[in-house]
Amino acid sequence: MSQMELKFPSTRSPVVIRQATEEDLQLMASDVILFLPEGLFPRLGKRFVRRWMRTFLTEQYGVALVAVTIDAPQQQVGLLIGSTNQIHHVADVLHQHKWSLLRAGLAALCLRPRVLLHFLRTRARPYLRRIMGHTNNPEAGSGPRPATAVITSLVVRPTMRAGGIGRFLVEEFLDRATADQASLAELVTTAGAEGAGAFYTKIGWKRVEERYSKDGTPIHTYHRSLP
């Protein structure tokens, strides 16, 4: 558990970065849907997002961190989820949770006809291939791949930004990735003012790719080399 001092407008309160727990998932899911609405998963609703985020608590390479104030009343002010080895994490999730996530996803889609139609147009084929096991072999390919850590979601509540919480969460994640022998860290963020590219550039990440998401949104990929 790590601790920092954050200056609030009227006082100072310690903020702790700790491992997320099952009890944190409800608010974590709400924050991801509210502050990171791009992509398919947030559109599937809080129940599915909570179920998906639970895999980052249970699997070996998953990372789920929360930033919480210590002073009463305690507040969750930030979160980070990701994996210290993305290839192996995805394989583990598919092995352990494929059918439960599939059931949860289908139930969410059935309640959201517009999202279902969008899914069928943009994602059905690659998701089916993954479910059928065509892309989940960590050792597939011509040779061993470098271990890549991936930040999937990073949220800091708007009133708490510019205080160092985001940097602190990222540093804790990178420490864990380094300990797990990752040689590269990666993330994707929306391009332009809607994304967090300026923040990541400021803390040492390098933009390496521009492309469009499956929804047609311009996105940027960032890398960070690890020791």
Rank of each mutant, 00 (worst) to 15 (best):
R112N: 15
K214P: 04
H95C: 10
R121I: 04
P113A: 13
P218E: 11
R43W: 03
E172F: 04
G105T: 11
G82I: 02
S83P: 00
R12T: 15
L184I: 02
R130N: 13
V68M: 14
E59P: 00
E172T: 13
A177P: 00
P14F: 15
R145N: 11
V66N: 09
Q19M: 04
P146H: 01
A191K: 04
A177S: 08
R125V: 06
I87R: 09
L111F: 03
P14Q: 15
G216M: 00
M1P: 12
A20H: 00
A67E: 12
G143F: 11
L184V: 04
T122K: 06
M4K: 10
M53A: 12
T159F: 08
P218R: 05
H118F: 04
P37V: 10
V170R: 01
G216D: 12
P73W: 08
A124N: 02
L57V: 03
A162E: 14
M1H: 09
L111P: 01
Y61R: 01
R50I: 03
W99I: 07
F119H: 03
P126N: 09
E139Q: 12
L226A: 00
F56I: 05
G143L: 09
A191C: 05
N136V: 02
V93A: 12
F35M: 07
F35N: 10
A124Q: 07
L57M: 11
Q26C: 03
E186T: 00
T135R: 05
L174G: 07
R51M: 04
R125A: 13
R123C: 02
F168R: 08
Q75P: 03
V208D: 09
G105A: 15
A193E: 14
L120F: 05
K202P: 00
V93W: 09
V68I: 10
R129I: 03
K202E: 15
R12F: 15
T58M: 08
A20K: 03
W52H: 11
V32W: 08
R47K: 06
T159E: 15
H220T: 08
L106P: 04
R54M: 11
R123S: 14
